[in-house]
Write a protein that binds this DNA or RNA. Structure first.
Length: 340
DNA sequence: CGATGTCAAGGAATC
DNA sequence: GATTCCTTGACATCG
């Protein structure tokens, strides 16, 4: 771990005229803090026990303190932060954002003071292009909750909600049409925040680019998904540049970066016959996230990125510990002036 | 206290 | 048509 005090000082790397202690590109991580069970990311109690956003916000405040301590300026908030807020059968949970207005305002101010870029990534059940009307409608209301939450923080325009296109359902053209149609029917509060990520099975960079062309939705380039789902063989930096170009000039684009797991790993599995739980070694399947970020791979990616402005959300099992280790690698390679 | 079952929600691959 | 995986933990209950 590198304490914030050890982060190297640099001058005016972004041309702003200010001697910023940090380089312009931000490194972030998602939701959970590894090795710190005391730092929870949301109130996960069952509905019978009355979980509440105000408890989650207390947790988030402690996470912000951790981020400040370590000079981390990018973080993905748990989509479960407001428990059951869109559950159709539990209306008593639906007003949590209003009930926490003051705490949300205060946390938003804190995030701004930390120059913290926030984001959210709704769970896999949120499928905007579902042919099931009920699922699509529930997805739209869930996206609206995410937007209300970020708005209640007064988060800036770079605080995005990241989604995938959804399923294919045996008819790709119809599935894309449904995404476009449902996107266009979203309130502008959601449209302002929503960005689209290439996925690992169904919607490659080439395909999300077509959706961008029809909707204007900005694209988050995911390096690992591109590595495993790239049917038209677009070179990685070409795909990267195409996605970056989908962002309006006044916003800072971002990408997802992760290293693919290569080794076998040991998992705990229960034998269906004996019921005995034991460690089993299984080979890594394509597309799985590694515990860490490969520093050489990351630096090679930066070399090809030129002077483009963008932020990087790291997706590694070891979470912020992977970020710290990558910082060490960047420092050793003399590249910490680019990104921190 | 340790072990075990459960958790709001979808889609796709496999058989 | 039904099952399992994605992915993983943490909560909740039971013995």
């Amino acid at each position: 771990m590198i304490p914030a005090a050890r982060s190297p000082n640099r001058a005016d790397l972004d041309g702003s005229g200010w001697a910023d202690p940090h380089p312009p590109r931000r490194l972030g991580f998602a939701v959970k803090i590894a090795g710190r069970p005391d730092l929870k990311d949301h109130d996960s109690r069952r509905w019978q026990n009355g979980p509440h956003l105000r408890v989650s916000l207390h947790y988030l405040d402690q996470i912000f303190a951790y981020l400040a301590e370590h000079g981390i300026r990018m973080y993905r908030i748990s989509s479960d932060i407001a428990p059951y807020i869109t559950h159709p059968d539990l209306p008593q949970f639906h007003q949590q954002i209003e009930e926490c207005r003051d705490a949300l305002t205060a946390l938003g101010e804190r995030a701004r003071a930390l120059n913290l870029r926030l984001s959210m990534h709704p769970a896999q059940h949120i499928v905007l292009n579902s042919p099931t009307e009920r699922v699509a409608a529930a997805s739209m209301s869930d996206l609206a909750y995410h937007a209300r939450f970020l708005d209640a923080l007064s988060a800036d325009a770079n605080a995005k909600i990241v989604t995938h296109t959804g399923g294919v359902y045996g008819d790709r053209a119809a599935a894309a049409d449904r995404f476009v149609r449902h996107y266009e029917s979203l309130p502008s509060a959601v449209q302002r925040r929503l960005v689209l990520e290439n996925d690992e099975t169904s919607w490659s960079v080439e395909e999300v680019l077509r959706i961008h062309e029809r909707t204007g939705i900005p694209l988050v380039f995911d390096t690992l998904h591109h590595a495993v789902n790239n049917p038209s063989r677009i070179a990685v930096h070409d795909a990267f540049r195409l996605c970056l170009a989908t962002w309006p000039a006044e916003h800072v684009p971002k990408i997802h970066f992760s290293t693919q797991r290569r080794e076998h790993r040991e998992i705990s599995r229960q034998d269906p016959n004996t019921g005995i739980r034991a460690g089993v070694r299984v080979p890594a399947k394509p597309g799985q996230h590694d515990d860490w970020i490969d520093g050489n791979e990351f630096i090679a990616f930066l070399e090809g990125a030129g002077d483009a402005r963008f932020d990087v959300m790291l997706e590694a099992k070891q979470k912020q510990l992977a970020l710290f280790r990558l910082r060490d690698d960047l420092l050793a390679a003399g590249r910490s002036g680019d990104i921190w």
